[in-house]
Design a protein around this nucleic acid. Structure first.
Lengths: 334, 334
DNA sequence: CTGAAAGCGCTTACAG
DNA sequence: CTGAAAGCGCTTACAG
């Protein structure tokens, strides 16, 4: 029932080889022959089967993308950038998440082993970097998004986490804040280390080193922001500013501050990271370090596509700088 | 270099047929033979090539999913539910969006024609329902998410949009509100019609029909919520309540209300739709109709997987009811 | 400029 | 219980 290249060949009175040549634009073809074959293709509405093409060519035409969770507010932006780019490169995008823990990774691994895609885009999922590194070493083209300095030999797209942390610090210092609380993201992520370092270095250089008790581990969730503030307040830590590693935990922190009777920005000036939609909607609106999320997705996908087209990977991580967006949560106090 | 079924067969001293039988658990096999083949498979780390399997079997093992945009805050939830389910069904999920308009749809269509997936999950993208209907009619198993009453013959997962609209209305009526403004989603979507109808019917039944001037078209964006309120205020429309078709436009509406000097909930009680994370974080927190987003993704994927496993589709749309979440934006006034 | 044939790596009747 | 052979629908040397 479904028409194949053989049907086209028969109807056009040529060999399958010739039809294939027309399809792929390879070799010199008689113009009349080519026109005739094209006409038949149109008449029949023939489209080559992706299954057969991929087996014959030894490539799938699919790019895999592994993402930690789709419910994080910024994942959508990166993903959208990647999907758009992959799509215009005539590839398909196969999506995987680590949402179900080990089960997910097993499923993902089985698709890798089955060679279900030609290249991989990864937003580093907690604790799988070693596995991804193996894949890369085994020859699967991989581009990592975000986690920059942990494996410099890895093709990756990053943003200026360290500079972003520094921007946040300089802004708070300028406002006269001297005792910041830092609510970090999940420990172990390269971006987490960098953001904290950029931030604390700037404070230290200004003569106000951040004490260890003011550095609190979070995990990028709303709840972790709340919990960190609650812990700090309960522990008697004094602070007049707060830097969170993402907007979501900053929003959680602001809620907890409100519950603790601290007014933002009067008592505590708050800076987040990411600039997701939510940031403009908190009360007060959140000052934040803007990550070029969509752009990172686009660039990572472009690098991978270029690689699959035969070009070499860049040897250095590609870095897209962060922006700084000032809003009400750090409004200067009269 | 990559090992094939032939390598396994040779090393185990059996035919490829036998290896295939072990792999797929088909036919009676001598226990010793099977054990030997399994051992060789393990030793060699052999995994069948997805490309070859799909060509031989005539199926891809992939499910396509078409989504309007990944940057809408609720898409992630539905998608996550679908991905998790598809994954545990041993299928892959190929993601498509309509983000680039016609170009996207062309790319999507070419993958459909190439039979790059066995079944399709769709969150109805504006204006492509006819095309999807064709695909369904042409034999591609399709499950639609959300847009319920526009094509009753379509396998779909929906939620109680009409009942949700009614819940919102009854809640506002109970609070003594009589002149609601409705900020609808993109016109033409089935859910939009239903939400408005459920809402206006309840008001009419209570003796307070909603005038046409209070029904404003939006498009689910933050900006459309702002714009609608601005229009109503400028037009002199009087209102003491607002029902928005999603949380994002409700948030936009609340911003515009603030700018217009109207206090929520004192002057205007606001109800949204969806219950995305954002809803709990607006000021005041947003009362909203909760959609079972993740559950809808899970169920739609299950229906499709069951269908691909040979079971028939349910003949009726499957409906998961909405919930109603009361928060500060409709707090009773003393 | 064009075609016959082999091959991609599996599955599946068909035989035994 | 097991295997030889054909077939899935293309691409790609190899010949002419």
């Amino acid at each position: 029932m479904p028409i194949t290249i053989a049907d086209v060949a028969a109807r056009a009175g040529v060999s399958k080889t010739t039809v294939s040549r027309v399809l792929n634009g390879r070799g010199e073809l008689d113009a009349a022959t080519e026109a005739r074959v094209r006409r038949v293709i149109d008449e029949l509405g023939y489209v080559p089967s992706a299954r057969a093409v991929s087996l014959a060519r030894g490539r799938t035409g699919v790019i895999g993308m592994l993402v930690p969770s789709l419910t994080w507010p910024w994942t959508g932006q990166v993903l959208q950038g990647a999907v758009d780019t992959v799509e215009s490169g005539k590839y398909g995008l196969m999506l995987f998440t680590c949402n179900q823990g080990d089960g997910s990774m097993r499923q993902f691994a089985s698709q890798v082993d089955a060679k279900a895609f030609d290249g991989l885009l990864v937003i580093e999922p907690e604790g799988t970097l070693d596995y991804i590194t193996e894949l890369h070493a085994a020859g699967l083209p991989v581009v990592l998004i975000d986690d920059r300095e942990s494996r410099p030999q890895f093709p990756s797209v990053a943003t200026t986490n360290r500079a972003g942390g520094r921007q946040a610090a300089l802004h708070l210092l300028e406002l006269g804040r001297r005792r910041p609380l830092v609510v970090s993201g999940t420990p172990g992520f390269g971006c987490v280390t960098e953001r904290t370092e950029g931030f604390t270095e700037a404070f230290a250089e200004a003569g106000f080193p951040v004490p260890a008790e003011a550095l609190l581990d979070g995990d990028f969730t709303l709840e972790s922001g709340r919990a960190a503030v609650a812990r700090a307040v309960a522990g008697g830590v004094e602070f007049d500013a707060l830097f969170a590693h993402n907007d979501l935990s900053a929003a959680g922190a602001m809620q907890a501050l409100g519950e603790a009777g601290r007014v933002v920005p009067r008592d505590v000036a708050v800076v987040g990271f990411d600039d997701v939609d939510l940031a403009a909607l908190t009360t007060p609106p959140l000052t934040t370090v803007r990550q070029p999320l969509r752009e990172m997705g686009v660039l990572a996908a472009r690098m991978l596509l270029a690689r699959l087209a035969g070009e070499p990977f860049p040897t250095e991580p590609v870095v897209i700088p962060t922006d700084f967006v000032v809003r009400g949560s750090t409004a200067p106090q009269a």
